[in-house]
Amino acid sequence: MGMTSPSQRVLRATSNGVLLLVLVAFALPLVWLLLASVDTSATLSVKWPEAFTLDNFTTVLTPDLAFVPLANSLVISLGCALLTVAAAVLAAYPLSRYRMRINKPFLYGVLFGTCLPVTAMMVPVYSLFVWLNLIDSVPGTILFLAASSLPMAIYMAKNFMDSVPITLEEAAWVDGASMLKTLTTIVIPLMRPGLAVVFIFVFIGAWGNFFVPFVLLLSPDRQPAAVTIFSFFGQYGSVAYGQLAAFSLLYSVPVLALYVLVSRSLGGASALAGAVKG
């Protein structure tokens, strides 16, 4: 602690004051979510519950309302993340290790893909899926989600792989190990933390995605939680805000937990933003 001049103290007080105002504005919608979830007579406005109760949670924790949609979310997000990471690591290896003529155009294409407004594409994606007979198909949805998160994943995986030193692989090559063997036994174990980041990044994206499954999956028993929350709102929305908030929280917890995990392990919340090359 150094000496603080009067002007610095004024600056400090102003900063604190302004930030506290911003804090209130940003926190209120989230506080509503928390308070409404423990209030059976919740309204749309923030209010202190008359009695704290977990009734909302017990009401929505039934197979139909919560478990099946959450399981669907898990299947879709896990499938998407596994597929994406596998394809991204395979693609990142030659991009990172060999100087090939297609590296540059491929990386430009990938970079271009990260910028593509996927939301804007959902109408043509729908008609393409009708033509491919993949509407209402969970594997189809997984494939599309994987493809749309792949450009960013390849970019991240390549950056992580570039930081793995090549000397160990050279030794393996001398011993006659194949490319796939070098990749699986040397490179992947060394970049495991990086791969975990890519995996979680893709998983969070797929778990939170609403529009893609909303357009591509039609049967309620195949829809992930994001879509059933929306239909729940349409059916009971005007009466059961508390239940809606409780379900929303249950659905959000995994994403928040994974985010904390990633930002802790990489030191600071800027991990994900940094991965986007800010």
Binding site: L28, P29, W32, G208, I229, Y241, S248, S252, V255, L256
Partner: peptide, 14 residues
């Protein structure tokens, strides 16, 4: 970080 559908509902209520 919140899933977009949850953030959208929180904003709708607000």
């Amino acid at each position: 970080v919140l899933p977009e559908i949850v953030a959208s509902f929180a904003a709708y209520a607000f």
